[in-house]
Design a binder for these strands. Structure first.
Length: 271
DNA sequence: CCCGATTCCTGTAGGC
DNA sequence: TGCCTACAGGAATCGG
């Protein structure tokens, strides 16, 4: 399930081959993703050149000389290169062929992802305008998080997963970051001191950076541009480790449901 | 405005 | 072995 590190790993994997490449054809086999793949996308993109591959939140932004492709991997989407002539498999929904020698193939069993195209600045697209700061940027500080949490009674974990507060932190990294910061996932966001918020923002940054360093987290769905999994799941301290001994205090890790999402924490270390 | 619940979808795992 | 059900989750949207 791609969160920010997995999307960033994907970006780094596909950017070298895509940058300055010419799109020779686009094939759409399934339009029914989270939002319909625009019918005219293939026509718009055929023959144009890719200028850059960037990321904002969990969106990949493929800038061409005829608009920008906006790609979201949802929770089961992958992008990988195959050679032309490779038979499509189940859930291979879209092909973008470049330089007649590689196909960037989008596969998404659950179809929670999307592929869109815009002529405008993609940051002005409705899906991207209300996003909070990047967690790895200097804008995401303890002061910022403390300020935007004032008076909020929502539990800190779903608060951290709210893209209007900060982007890219999904279910796995929210649990991991709160464990590292020693904060209980159910604690009201508005009742966390500035000092603890500073610890939390540092924990978020560290967890995300370490995950990127390990190639992301593969639990079941995530594979990078070369079809290889990430190895950060070995480094997870609480996620999917219910009943295992906490690495700090040896008490069993607990699993609860919070905001309709499974949540993992140490009841002894997190308050 | 705030916040919890619902919704989309399919593969996987567990129960019988 | 096979059928059935529960569950996983990103994020928009709905409802109170």
């Amino acid at each position: 399930m791609p969160e920010l590190p997995e999307v960033e790993i994907t970006r780094r994997g596909i950017a070298p081959r895509l940058t300055n490449a010419k799109i020779t054809s686009v094939t759409i086999r399934e339009h029914r993703l989270r939002w319909p793949v625009p019918a005219n996308m293939a026509k718009h993109l055929a023959g144009c050149t890719i200028n850059s591959v960037n990321r904002r939140a969990k969106y990949l932004l493929v800038k061409t000389d005829n608009g920008t492709i906006i790609i979201h991997l949802g929770m089961s989407g992958t992008l990988r290169f195959v050679k032309p002539g490779t038979a499509p498999k189940k859930h291979d929904h879209v092909d973008i062929e470049i330089n007649s020698d590689y196909i960037l193939r989008y596969n998404d069993p659950r179809r929670f992802g999307c592929l869109l195209r815009t002529d405008d600045n993609p940051l002005s697209h409705p899906l991207l305008t209300r996003l909070g700061p990047e967690p790895l940027s200097s804008a995401f500080t303890g002061h910022y998080l403390h300020t935007v949490s004032k008076g909020r009674r929502i539990a800190i974990k779903p608060h951290l997963m709210n893209a209007a507060i900060v982007v890219g932190v999904g279910n796995i990294y929210a649990s991991e970051s709160l464990f590292r910061a020693g904060i209980h996932p159910k604690r009201a966001a508005g009742r966390i001191s500035l000092e603890r918020m500073m610890h939390l923002t540092e924990a978020v940054k560290l967890v995300l950076q370490e995950s990127i360093h390990h190639g992301g987290t593969t639990l079941r769905d995530f594979y990078n541009g070369e079809g290889k999994p990430g190895y950060f799941s070995n480094e997870l301290n609480v996620y999917d480790r219910q009943d295992e001994a906490c690495i700090k205090c040896r008490q069993p890790i607990r699993q609860i449901t919070l905001g309709q999402r499974s949540t993992f924490y140490c009841p002894n270390c997190q308050r």
